[in-house]
Design a protein around this nucleic acid. Structure first.
Lengths: 123, 123
DNA sequence: GTAACGTACAACAACATGGTTGTACGTCAG
DNA sequence: CTGACGTACAACCATGTTGTTGTACGTTAC
């Protein structure tokens, strides 16, 4: 059940969509900060929910979005679900943005494959 | 040509929302890649649009989303709008994710300290 | 001037998102 | 067992997103 993903650098378009979309909400970013900052023990969903001015169900769904994006993992402990941050995914996203930066600097990384086209065929 | 901009490090929650949401779409990420990779000349909106299997209006709105997020800027040149990537915003987002990583490592999140770090200490 | 080009924007439909409440169910404490 | 706790999920509503087409308007080419 533990999917052995070994520090994948390559991310599928859909995965990247999910990661950035998950990060595009301040509540969810706050959850990420909380669980990354407490990655040893983790936090139950309800203890997370207690911090926000919204229903438990809403927070639960935010956590589900984060989980679907791979930014957090949940682990059952008795009747609680312990949420822990997955720094691997954060790192992958950071790396992608770093590649964009490199692109801007003119150092062509692996991005030319994404572009797939030599420039100059248009206008 | 290295534009020494103000390099804001602090981002409003809403701004971060917009940045990540703008990045949560593969077409828009592709636009960012194209204009960052061609930051000298820039690209008109229609030359960008020619690469995608969707209407010009759709691409135009994608560009508008990127502009609202501060990831690109538009500059009028005759009847064209030249789109250029704004690496500052990309960098700000990357930095935010780097802070999350630091948080995970247990290093206290002193922002100035993190930002002052020279690159390349990653192991 | 006229035609084509590049852009802007509104209206519309389909779908996704983010919140709510209500219900259900397993687990722990008594 | 019973009741409280923690979680899961469905239904619902309001709003936002993403594509479409159509129209309008300034700019460039002829």
């Amino acid at each position: 059940m533990v999917v052995r993903q070994q520090e994948r650098t390559e991310l599928d378009d859909r995965e990247v969509d999910r990661i950035f979309q998950a990060l595009a909400d301040s509540t969810r970013r706050d959850v990420v900060v909380r669980v990354l900052g407490d990655s040893e023990r983790g936090q139950s969903v309800s203890s997370l929910a207690s911090h926000y001015a919204m229903s438990f169900a809403a927070v639960q769904r935010h956590v589900a979005v984060l989980e679907r994006a791979g930014l957090v993992r949940k682990e059952r402990r008795g009747r609680e679900q312990i949420v822990r941050g997955d720094v691997t995914t954060v790192r992958a996203a950071a790396r992608l943005l770093a590649e964009y930066e490199e692109l801007w600097r003119g150092r062509v990384t692996r991005m030319e494959q994404i572009l797939a086209e030599p420039e100059g065929d248009d206008s």
